[in-house]
């Protein structure tokens, strides 16, 4: 099964990716960088803590991971054959 979204034509997401990006709430200082850099709107802020809302449109770019000063974000690749793919990159 795979999904497509209107905001990102030409890209599909194959199911089974799981929670390959997570936030360690203890380390998060609420700076909001992850929200400012994520073009797929994957993050939400609750109180002063960011969390991954959903990775449905995540293109695995790593911008959130690179931009998190206290290193609160754990970034890994989804399992083989899952996550985003495109023929037009």
């Amino acid at each position: 099964m795979s999904m497509t979204y209107q905001e990102f034509p030409g890209v599909e997401w194959i199911e089974g990716a799981g929670d390959f990006i997570t936030v360690d709430e203890k380390l998060c200082d609420g700076c909001g960088n992850c929200i400012r850099v994520c073009l797929a709107k994957c993050y939400k802020m609750t109180g002063k803590k960011a969390h991954v809302d959903n990775l449905e449109r995540c293109m695995e770019c790593g911008a959130c991971w690179y931009s998190c000063p206290p290193d609160a974000i754990q970034f890994s690749w989804p399992p083989g054959g899952t996550g985003f793919r495109t023929l037009w990159g």
């Binding site: 905001e7 990102f8 034509p9 030409g10 890209v11 073009l39 293109m59 770019c61 790593g62 911008a63 690179y66 495109t86 023929l87 037009w88 990159g89």
Partner: peptide
């Protein structure tokens, strides 16, 4: 005609 939209670091 737009065919695809993507992003990357």
């Amino acid at each position: 005609t737009l065919r695809a939209k993507m992003f990357d670091v």
